[in-house]
């Protein structure tokens, strides 16, 4: 008990601050990514230019394959070239947004695409306008797939957000880096354990959200 209370006594404040920063980074990045990916994914699913959707989805896929460390380095270099701040939250959030884009984009795209075309034709045949079809048929029916994408993106972003500590964006990565530099297991754990917990808790929350958002008729029988 003594060791633990001492550990938290020293680190408690640091952990709280870093966790808050971590949540802020992740959340901001996810919201921005969602604002981009949701309309873009819908557009790609509906556009007649299938080649364009293919192209953009593969670009997002390629971004995903860049190792996260390399990505952060790349952003710093590019930011330096275009005279934007190379340290702090901005480059960090940009990196996180780029990573979160793919799962969000892909799932929005697939979610809309998997809606039975017969259902859409019936909706049209009954006299729904395109906007009404999107909001009252396509989106509700693709919501489970889209939320699954949000879930994946959240867990990934929480993990990758530990790396942006490297460029001074803050977050739990700070503690891990401090632990690495000073070879101290307590700092290392103070960064790692909350990050892992954060991922688990978010995953659980979103899975609940997923169930709550899934239109009722889709749950039974399928």
């Amino acid at each position: 008990m003594g060791i633990i209370s001492e550990f938290y006594g020293r680190l408690g404040e640091d952990i709280l601050k870093a966790t808050y920063q971590h949540v802020f980074l992740t959340f901001t990045a996810l919201v921005i990514a969602l604002v981009i990916a949701l309309p873009l994914g819908i557009f790609l699913a509906k556009t007649r230019f299938k080649k364009l959707s293919g192209l953009i989805l593969s670009i997002a896929g390629v971004i995903q394959t860049i190792p996260s460390l390399a990505m952060i380095a790349l952003i710093v270099v590019i930011f330096a070239l275009i005279r934007l701040p190379t340290i702090g939250r901005l480059p960090g959030i940009v990196a996180l947004v780029l990573y979160a884009l793919l799962p969000l984009l892909r799932n929005t795209y697939t979610g809309i695409k998997q809606v039975d075309p017969v259902i859409i034709e019936v909706a049209r045949g009954m006299g729904m306008k395109e906007r009404q079809i999107l909001f009252s048929v396509e989106l509700p029916l693709s919501l489970p797939v889209i939320t699954a994408g949000i879930r994946i993106a959240t867990v990934w972003t929480i993990g990758i957000a530990t790396l942006v500590g490297l460029i001074g964006a803050g977050g739990l990565g700070d503690l891990i880096i401090r632990g690495l530099r000073t070879i101290r297991i307590d700092y290392l754990l103070a960064g790692t354990v909350p990050a892992a917990l954060l991922a688990l808790v978010s995953d659980w929350i979103i899975s609940r959200l997923e169930r709550w958002l899934t239109p009722e008729g889709l749950e039974t029988g399928g």
């Binding site: 017969v118 259902i119 019936v122 049209r124 006299g127 029916l141 008729g217």
Partner: peptide
């Protein structure tokens, strides 16, 4: 379309 009734095979019901 709103003035015309339209029925197709049962898959046409909105599942949600």
């Amino acid at each position: 379309r709103r003035k015309i009734g339209y029925a197709i095979q049962h898959i046409g019901l909105f599942p949600h």
